[in-house]
Nucleic acid binder design. Structure first.
Lengths: 218, 218
DNA sequence: GTCAACATTTTTGTATACAATATGGATGTT
DNA sequence: AACATCCATATTGTATACAAAAATGTTGAC
């Protein structure tokens, strides 16, 4: 039970930024934040450093720290990168995955299917996380897995959004089954392609949502 | 001209750790470092935070910050990840690379050839950096490129080591030419494979060096 | 001699004080 | 009125002071 204020505050700020409480370019004022969290500037500054290190905010020397929400272009780049990294995980996992992990994946998929039937997008989301996390781990490369996890987490809020699109859950479901088939067969190229496409489609759907939002705003 | 002590110190510490001035598990004592750099603990702490964020050091709450040199296993994982990420960059670059960048690559290779002839490993190293950096950039995905650059930088000291192996520069040279050919032909799978193997061999050579060192030590 | 409980000392984490720099506005000039 | 200059203010960056927790050393019992 670590009672470090800096860590707690960093998590809280990250959450606030991810949930859109701050816009791109907003300055993260140390004094207001210190008052808000009831601490001094010191732990606030440490928390801000962490945000800067993880790319969520930007620091201009002697000017302050500003939130840096990714724009459409960077988001698409991040989705593309995620697709390629997942493909890599899949390629490696196809050759290294354990029997236990394979049945874990099948179990996750079964639970996903239930969630689709019930229209329970939260449950679907939870099992989906588990599914992907298992594949990362089964790449047999814990460094790669940690990087994948990191980007996955960064894209989490956006990934989640596109799941709300009509029919997307069922489609995603089918893609998952393709992936498991390829992994079971030990077909590395097919696993890579299936995962790349799966995440690539997520990016496409997300882009669609964004352009829709933009035209709606006009 | 940023005069932030914290930034300068973080860079200095990173350099010290990369050049092996600290062993794995060494505690980075705030007070000694403060005396060493002639500043107070505050900028030291900020610098340490940055090291922790980039994975060079580890923080145990209320215990301190400890340097974390990657062991053999993690190093091989990082090389494998680098190989796969470079492969991805190559695959994307094969479809997106500009004529200008292609001639840049050829020029880098020509300079590399000169360096090999002269046995100038520093010059070779410099042009090699340029070569890979160009490919990252030509992936057309600046997020991916920045991640590739980041890992490349992390592996830099180890990459450099294996270049000293007999005949390695000439071999690496030939691999570079394969890569340029594939990119010129726009053959994405071949470019990916060539880059994956190129970096994969670096990992192999490095592993060889390590086991040699270990047996020599016994 | 070993081990446990307590006191002392270090060290981390946080608060506050101070220094240095950037920002915004008032003032004066053209 | 537009613009430059200078000053007051606000904010960041650093130093120091204090609080809390861990590491260490000492003492005493068995």
């Amino acid at each position: 039970m670590t009672l470090r204020h800096a860590d707690r505050i960093a998590d809280a700020l990250e959450e606030l930024i991810f949930t859109g409480q701050f816009d791109d370019g907003d300055r993260l004022d140390e004094i207001s934040l210190a008052n808000h969290f009831g601490v001094s500037r010191t732990p606030i500054r440490e928390a801000l450093q962490r945000l800067v290190a993880s790319g969520i905010a930007e620091q201009l020397p002697r000017r302050g720290v500003f939130v840096r929400q990714p724009g459409p272009v960077e988001l698409m780049e991040m989705f593309e990168t995620m697709a390629e990294i997942e493909a890599v995980c899949g390629r490696l996992a196809a050759r290294r995955i354990s029997e236990d992990a394979l049945s874990d994946l099948e179990q996750s998929n079964a639970r996903c299917r239930d969630a689709v039937a019930k229209g329970d997008s939260d449950a679907y989301y939870r099992e989906n996380e588990r599914f992907h996390h298992t594949i990362y781990a089964q790449s047999g490369n814990s460094y790669l897995a940690s990087q994948a996890q990191r980007l996955h987490r960064r894209l989490q809020p956006f990934r989640r959004l596109q799941l709300r699109l009509r029919g997307r859950m069922a489609q995603s479901m089918a893609e998952h089954e393709d992936i498991v088939e390829a992994l079971t067969a030990g077909n590395d190229e097919r696993a890579a392609t299936a995962l790349r496409d799966h995440v690539g489609i997520q990016g496409e759907k997300f882009r669609h949502l964004m352009t829709e939002l933009r035209t709606a705003a006009q």
